[in-house]
Design a protein around this nucleic acid. Structure first.
Lengths: 212, 212
DNA sequence: CAAGACCTATATCGGTCCTATATATCCCCT
DNA sequence: AGGGGATATATAGGACCGATATAGGTCTTG
């Protein structure tokens, strides 16, 4: 599902300009589960117009750049309904925060506390905003909005109840993983353990030296 | 935080090949909050080697392509610790599922049920996997793992308790948004309502025709 | 026991998308 | 008066993903 399709769906909710579509992603209906930037929205709208899935009529304003208002065509509506039937990509969650927490032992307790405070606040605000009245009044919109509210609330709760666990290890001793090689040492498949052991042996001294 | 830095961090957990790093993202430690593909991992490792943040020693295997094992240098460790101090990007959640749910009125009840079943199962499996024993035994790793487990559990619970709300509206009447123009009609700032109203007037007939 | 599916392992191309920037005008606050 | 922010469109550069190529190995199943 590319930005082109996303824009088509956005216009299905009502006519809009590129600027307004961008706001739906930034702070509107889509903001808590989708992203799209001007860099992909404007080209997408151009292409959609070429393909006659949307139409564009300019509205000149006194002293501002012309406002280009886009509307879906019937062909566009059909194409969107089609797109809705294709298999969906998996939900994706990306968090640099969790990544950094993995390396808590490399940070000061202050830094860790600050990062968690920040993150709790982020989730709290999102949860609050999504608990408020719906921007769009459909049951479907409420459903997705409340989903966000619940998930962010769960995040806040987890962080508040468990933050002491990471805060305790700041600046402490190195990771202490049982296996130095990360993914469960797959190596040779059915080959005998001793063989793979000896293979990793001539790598061990280096590692031990580097662990400091 | 680019893939280059992510790889550096991965190697901080232990020496690894590009293939093994990829697995950390696909099914390993990072899998529930980060993604990275071969297309960015291999170039990243090349660049890291050029910059002397990691070293690479080839290990030739009898009948397979040479395994290139990467290790962080002291310079690399320092660079990574530095990178950890930079401001973090916000957490990001992307869900085509929620997007499609917004358009439940365009789908059959069967399709909606199937999609939710699928999504519940997805979250259930992730939650279960993350509730299991830790792949890496550090408190920090447990902290981030449990975070994932809790969030996915909350998702499952929400979907199961509220799915009837979306399932009820399948195939029903159009969206029925109070405002056709999506983002709360920002228009002219303090300009008088009547003006903006008249502006949208010559767009209304079209809209009414298209709503069908 | 053999064919096909899947795993190990590296690498690159094409296309999509984001970040940052440019341009231009207006309003609001200090 | 002047800076910051909103409105509004647009693009260049770079980061990244998805798909594909290569090549031999192992595991599964009929």
């Amino acid at each position: 599902m590319d930005v082109r399709t996303l824009c088509l769906g956005a216009l299905t909710l009502g006519d809009a300009t590129g600027y307004e579509i961008r706001k739906m992603f930034e702070e509107g209906v889509f903001s808590h589960f989708l992203e799209a930037s001007y860099g992909s929205i404007y080209p997408a709208l151009t292409r959609l117009t070429e393909e006659e899935l949307v139409t564009c009529h300019s509205e000149q304003q006194e002293k501002r750049p012309d406002k280009k208002i886009y509307s879906v065509t019937d062909k566009g509506r059909a194409a969107f309904t089609e797109a809705l039937l294709e298999p969906l990509a998996e939900d994706k969650f990306r968090s640099e925060f969790l990544f950094v927490m993995l390396f808590a032992h490399l940070l000061t307790p202050e830094r860790i506390k600050a990062l968690i405070d920040e993150k709790v606040e982020e989730h709290r605000q999102l949860s609050e905003r999504l608990s408020g009245p719906a921007e769009i009044g459909t049951p479907a919109a409420d459903f997705i909005k409340d989903f966000g509210a619940v998930v962010h609330k769960a995040s806040v709760d987890y962080l508040e109840k468990n933050r002491h666990k990471v805060e305790a290890i700041a600046g402490a001793s190195p990771p202490r993983a049982s296996e130095p090689r990360a993914p469960e040492a797959p190596q040779d498949g059915n080959a005998a353990r001793p063989a793979s052991q000896s293979k990793s042996d001539h790598r061990n001294p280096k590692e031990l030296a580097r662990i400091r």
